[in-house]
């Protein structure tokens, strides 16, 4: 048997290689999605429970003015769902770290950001899928688009998914900084819970006590919910959409370099 020629493929620039490495990593995670159906089921059951809970249990006592509550709620549910969905990024990375895979990748001549880029992209695909499921669930409980166009609605989902993508990178830093996947799990929810509940996702901010309003009005989840809501069911769009996109860009600017740094330093014994 003649020995296989193992010369690496030549003539791809640095950027070309980064993209190709990221794609290898992304595909790895995509392939695994249908192999861990329990993860996907959990990620959808939870928001479905929230929809049922809020529409049928709390909904009657929440005053959203002239807007039917289920229309008010669903954009909030979408944001909550993708933000929770983004937590899987940290979870997956913590697991890679724990299993020694991060060490293996770091000892390869691959690009430094590939694992993170591939992982976050795969999680974005996952989020697209989950949002689609949630949209169907929403339609089933009576959610309807209002005062919008196809373009605006698509823009709404664009703002939503961009926001989710940015959050994946926060989650990545958490996942690479903790000792175990379990810690990444609880470490993720500790800060995500207040962000999603002290926001305009489920109730109008105006109904909250004054001190909480200050926080709720000025945090990114509220901005994203407001933007998505305006784009799906009507309302003043521009300011909220710009703020949401600005938050996402800002988060990426801070957390992409931070997670690459955590990746390079990640050391688990």
């Amino acid at each position: 048997m003649t020995a296989l020629d193992l010369s690496p493929v030549a003539g791809r620039g640095r950027l070309g290689w980064s993209l190709s490495d990221a794609w290898v990593m992304c595909r790895r995670n995509l392939v695994k999605i249908p192999r861990t159906p329990e993860l996907l089921v959990f990620s959808t059951i939870q928001p479905v429970m929230f929809v049922l809970l809020f529409v049928y249990v709390f909904g009657g006592s929440i005053n959203t003015g002239s807007i039917p509550y289920r229309d008010y709620l669903m954009p909030g549910i979408f944001v909550q769902t993708v933000v929770f969905g983004a937590m899987t990024t940290g979870l997956g990375l913590a697991e890679d770290l724990q299993k020694g895979l991060v060490d293996r990748f770091r000892a390869l001549p691959m690009s430094r950001g590939a694992l993170l880029a591939g992982r976050t992209l795969a999680d974005l695909v996952r989020n697209v899928f989950i949002v689609a499921v949630m949209l169907l669930v929403g339609l089933a409980v009576g959610f309807r688009f209002h005062h919008t166009t196809v373009i605006a609605a698509l823009a709404g989902f664009g703002v939503l998914l961009f926001f989710a993508y940015a959050f994946s990178w926060i989650s990545a830093v958490v996942g690479l900084s903790v000792r175990s996947a379990e810690a990444a799990q609880s470490g993720g929810f500790i800060w995500v819970f207040p962000l999603t509940f002290a926001s305009s996702a489920f109730v109008p901010v105006a109904n909250m006590p004054g001190w909480l309003q200050v926080f709720a009005r000025n945090q990114p989840v509220t901005q994203c919910v407001n933007a998505v809501r305006a784009l799906l069911i009507g309302g003043p769009v521009t300011s909220a959409a710009l703020q949401s996109v600005a938050w996402s860009v800002g988060i990426l600017i801070v957390f992409v370099p931070l997670s690459v740094r955590s990746y390079r330093r990640a050391a688990v014994r």
Binding site: L4, L6, P8, V9, V24, R104, L108, M110
Partner: peptide, 16 residues
């Protein structure tokens, strides 16, 4: 996957 990350072509990585 590891072969690809060593920058082998898809075909070479599979064969290896």
């Amino acid at each position: 996957m590891f072969g690809r990350l060593y920058r082998l072509s898809g075909r070479t990585a599979r064969a290896r």
